[in-house]
Simulated assay, not measured.
Amino acid sequence: MEKTSSIHASDINIIRKKHMRLFIAGLILLALIVVTGTITNYNHIDGLVSVPAALQWLFANMYFSGSTLSRLPTVLRLLWETVLISIVSTTTAAFFAMLFAIVGSKRTSVNGFLMYFAKLVASISRNIPVVAWALILVLSFGTNAATGFLALFFGTFGFLVRAFIETIDETSGDTVEALKATGATYPQVISKAVIPESMPQMFSWVLFMIETNIRSATLVGLLTGTGIGYLFDLYYKQLNYEMVSLITLAIVVAVLAIEVVSNWIRREIL
């Protein structure tokens, strides 16, 4: 009976400690909100109060009439161009990312220098935002589709290298050791053990990046003058809110459709 009581008291103490940690974390978060608001001169109360007026303006202006629908084919054509650029840049980056991930993973690395070099290149690529890549590349390549492709490629490459390295590191080491024990060469170990086991999760990451890049491609298009982003920027500067609304709706529908398809594919392969 005494042992049961002591166990019960220990559980209560653990729960109390967790609640105390959550309370302290909440206070820290609240303090950060207040401090950042003070530094940036942002009033959170005024921001919340302005939400109803912002929504009222949105519903009053962001609509489109029947005449605007006549331009829908142009919107769909440029949207399709944006989707294709996103897919091509993601799949191309995935190919190179897989090569760097194989070299950069502890489980499959050739030597320490190449491993850290691959991680360094991926880290630099990943930590430069896609928008910054677009601005840098515009100076060299101008405003064209190639600039948008390269901006998405470099941003995607860095992220996928890290995701692929973690995926390879999580593969079973027993299969690799078994193949090495039978005298398998390094390419055989990669092709027969590492890649088959890692491929489903890698493919899931590629699908995730395609969804992400379709959103990013819209923003990149604003800077490179290509795709649906260029059309959005054009009509936004003209204060043509009907076309802006139509373009926004088309982008949302396209992203949701691709998300549904990618989720179905994930369920089939994972």
Score class of each variant (00 low, 15 high):
41 N>C: 00
84 L>C: 07
252 V>A: 10
51 V>D: 00
17 K>L: 12
116 Y>N: 11
108 T>P: 00
84 L>S: 07
19 H>E: 13
18 K>C: 11
263 N>H: 12
58 L>K: 09
26 G>E: 05
149 F>P: 03
16 R>Y: 12
247 I>L: 13
199 M>N: 08
210 I>E: 07
28 I>S: 10
167 T>R: 06
130 V>N: 07
161 V>N: 01
235 Y>V: 02
213 N>W: 02
8 H>I: 14
205 W>V: 07
152 L>Q: 01
76 L>A: 06
112 G>V: 10
68 T>V: 06
198 S>M: 07
118 A>E: 03
114 L>C: 05
131 V>K: 08
223 L>C: 02
77 R>G: 08
38 T>A: 13
106 K>R: 15
76 L>G: 00
185 T>R: 04
140 S>L: 11
153 F>N: 08
241 Y>S: 05
146 A>R: 12
243 M>H: 03
152 L>G: 01
17 K>Q: 14
75 V>R: 09
255 V>W: 08
185 T>P: 01
44 H>I: 09
50 S>R: 07
108 T>D: 02
63 Y>P: 00
210 I>K: 08
128 I>Q: 03
25 A>E: 06
132 A>N: 12
42 Y>R: 13
269 I>S: 05
70 S>H: 10
164 F>I: 01
8 H>M: 15
216 S>F: 09
50 S>L: 05
204 S>M: 07
12 I>E: 12
24 I>V: 14
103 V>Y: 05
193 A>Q: 02
219 L>S: 11
100 F>W: 05
244 V>A: 06
239 L>D: 06
143 T>C: 10
116 Y>R: 13
198 S>A: 15
258 I>P: 02
243 M>E: 07
228 I>T: 01
132 A>G: 06
38 T>Y: 15
142 G>S: 04
11 D>G: 10
67 S>T: 14
166 E>M: 08
177 E>F: 09
64 F>D: 13
77 R>W: 14
260 V>F: 11
40 T>D: 11
13 N>M: 14
70 S>C: 02
198 S>Y: 08
225 G>A: 12
202 M>C: 12
261 V>A: 03
112 G>S: 14
181 A>N: 04
146 A>V: 13
209 M>F: 01
158 G>E: 08
135 L>K: 04
